[in-house]
């Protein structure tokens, strides 16, 4: 099953070619961060305009580098949602036009299913069932995964996604968008003992998250520093450290709780925030004590990418799924609505 995958749901253009026998044959990724940085966040219209410029040249690059002709494909997969509607539509329309022109099936893939399955692109793959932590700028979810398309939401953020809290706190500290990597860089040199941020909702039962209060706590801390003539560079490093520690601790506590509740020993973590080194180290350590294992995608497949869409698409196309003639993109799309796939991967 040789599948081309297109990802255009937000501010990254990803194109990749996956083969069920040979694995990932080629992938290309372009980030629009430089376009959006002066606006302090993603501007949907600019994102859509850029996808129209970038996606097709990347398709050609990927096919050429793998020495594959379009008509050799078994299908074209694309992100059909969730995401920015205008951005989704560019990838969806291009993918469906390519597929129609080549005479191969097209299939719209769920973005979060792509993230969830991204660790399966690695040599060491997790086995079902497992608990997945999906953690990005748009999502913070704990999901029980019994197979492809067999998902049960265990908990999610009631307000800001973890990545969103990173971005907003970075903005408070005068750091550029996207804030996650900048916070992590400052935090590495920060004093962990100076500020003590709350760990939201860990005292309550259940697996939901809340990160907006943490952002407010960061704001108040910045204001305190300002009253004292700051915030100095050291203040910013220490605040970044306290903030990151609070987010990481909260995520670790909930992951451990989810594994215990479900009686499982495998955790998969995916999405942009899963690239955070502090989070990876803390989870690995905490889960080793539980004799559980944690699986991550390669860092380049933590953020949005085409490889995960090609992979997820290949599993579903192999099971005979394909778009209807009137398939539409789905900017909002609960993952639990996905049809299950028996006996795959």
């Amino acid at each position: 099953m040789l599948v081309l995958g297109l990802e255009t749901s937000c501010d990254e253009t990803g194109v990749a070619l996956f083969d069920s026998e040979r694995g990932l044959l080629a992938d290309a990724l372009y980030s629009q961060v430089d376009i959006h940085v002066e606006y302090g966040g993603v501007v949907p219209e600019l994102a859509s305009r850029d996808h129209v410029r970038k996606t097709l040249p990347m398709v050609e690059e990927v096919l050429r580098s793998a020495g594959v002709a379009g008509a050799d494909l078994d299908g074209v997969a694309y992100t059909a949602g969730p995401g920015l509607v205008g951005a989704l539509m560019v990838g969806a329309t291009l993918a469906r036009a390519l597929a129609w022109g080549w005479g191969v099936p097209a299939l719209g893939v769920h973005h979060m299913e792509g993230h969830l399955l991204a660790p399966m692109l690695e040599d060491e793959r997790p086995e079902f069932p497992f608990v997945a932590l999906l953690v990005s700028g748009g999502h913070t979810q704990l999901v029980r995964v019994d197979g492809i398309g067999r998902y049960r939401l265990l908990g999610e953020s009631l307000d800001d996604a973890a990545g969103e809290a990173f971005d907003k706190t970075a903005k408070l500290l005068g750091l550029p968008y996207p804030g996650g990597p900048h916070i992590a860089r400052l935090a590495a040199e920060g004093d962990p003992a100076r500020f003590d941020f709350p760990r939201p909702m860990v005292g309550k039962p259940g697996l939901d998250f809340s990160f907006s209060g943490l952002k407010t706590y960061a704001l108040n801390t910045v204001e305190d520093c300002r009253a004292a003539g700051g915030p100095s560079e050291k203040d910013c490093r220490d605040i970044a450290r306290a903030f990151e520690d609070a987010v990481v601790d909260t995520l670790v506590i909930k992951c451990r709780r989810a594994l215990r509740q479900e009686g499982l020993k495998t955790l998969v973590i995916a999405g942009g925030v899963s690239a955070n080194r502090n989070l990876r180290a803390s989870l690995t350590e905490a889960l080793a004590r539980e004799r559980a294992r944690v699986f991550y995608p390669a860092p380049r497949f933590c953020t949005d990418n085409g490889a995960m869409i090609a992979f997820a698409g290949a599993q579903r196309l192999a099971a005979g799924q394909r778009d209807d003639a009137d398939t539409a993109v789905r900017p909002r799309w609960p993952m639990e609505e996905l049809p299950p796939l028996e006996g795959a991967a």
Binding site: R49, E60, G86, M89, V90, A95, A97, L98
Partner: peptide, 17 residues
Amino acid sequence: FTGLRVAASAVQGLAYA
């Protein structure tokens, strides 16, 4: 804008394929 991108993306794909 969205309508223009639907045509452009479709034509890119059809013309390329």
